[in-house]
Design a protein around this nucleic acid. Sequence first.
RNA 1: GUGGGUAUAGUUCAGUUGGUUAGAGCGCCAGAUUGUGGCUCUGGAAGUCGUGGGUUCGAAUCCCACUACUCACC
Length: 376
Amino acid sequence: MNSFKYELLHVDTSTGARLGRLHTPHGVIDTPCYMPVGTAAAVKAMTSRDMLELDAPILLANTYHLYLRPGHELVSNAGGLHRFMAWDRPILTDSGGFQVFSLGDLRKVREDGVMFQSHIDGSRHLFTPEKVMEIEEALGADIIMAFDECSPYPCDRERAQRAMDRTHRWAERCKAAHRRSDQALFGIVQGAFYEDLRLQSVKTLTDMDFPGYGIGGLSVGEPKPIMYQMLDAVAPALPAHKPRYLMGVGSPDCLIEGALRGIDMFDCVLATRVARNGTALTSRGRIVVRNAAYAADLSPLDPECDCYACRSFSRAYIRHMLNVKEITGAHLVSLHNLHFLIQLMAELRAAIANDKGAEFRAAFYDKYGGDGTGRF
RNA sequence: GUGGGUAUAGUUCAGUUGGUUAGAGCGCCAGAUUGUGGCUCUGGAAGUCGUGGGUUCGAAUCCCACUACUCACC
């Protein structure tokens, strides 16, 4: 069976943003969408029930982390990731390419794969495209990512080309090794910050005909305009009838900028990571709830938000929770931030459907602050 | 009441044979965080060294008195 399908419903006449629908074995996802990250089979500080109430359309999990702990075989024996984490909606697993990339000195990239040492106990492991496919099949997500080599920023052309070529060879091997027809395997576009390499990557991967394409190697520390420039080059070159996934992005403004450039899927740890450290994303910009300015502020995190945290609790209460290090503090801000991004995408989809993408962007910056070039 | 001990940042404590601008943890204040090696990381403010006197070129440090706290014994 192959129940994976992407439907392109509408293209915003004002910007080129796409409205779509992604069909998976575990349900339908409206795009563009933000996918919360649950690295170790849980969105940090949240339960699957919370994520359902937030109406998260799909969750991410991570191959590298689940392979090391608790092991993909255990997850498989537990009935697969969906059952293990009690989440019936779609799941996407990242291949571990990025994690291995961020291991730094603990890894050695070779042609057959990546030799690396566990960040937990120093034990040695080899990730090959075939091994990664074995793990991702055992985990059983609806969408799985090919094993790629992410290059850093900045990156000289020769190194970028080498990583990209290897990513292509590995993509081929992932495709050949992939058996489960109920999982969609996405290829990943690389090429660092060279437009011609990016276009070459798109060509090579689309010739292999994947059901969807990740855009990797962005949001690795480069200025936003450079990332947007890459998207402007890559997105139009990708096939219209396949979903595009901008990996690791992002902040509210980046989600909008990406979607208006034709991106359909995003994932990012930012919302939950900053939440745990006391920062809320709101319609009027970021607020560091932890700051003394909110000690006696009885208003909600975001006056325009209707999430559980904003309906029920004041900034003063949430700041207090964070201050005394109650788990509830991290939970409430995470809940709000996730709701904010999920809601933002729902509103953005409505705007795209009405050809008002450009207006939506302007209205967003008007309240949130910034113009898309600075931080957040 | 008698004898001993202690007194240094908001707090718990370092502080060498007396030597230049008295330090640390926690707390406080602020910043960072983009396919999570993160309850993490970076920075900042903050002290009349209990009070008063003395010795000395120089005292948180040595001496005296006082005060507070504390322990033991009456």
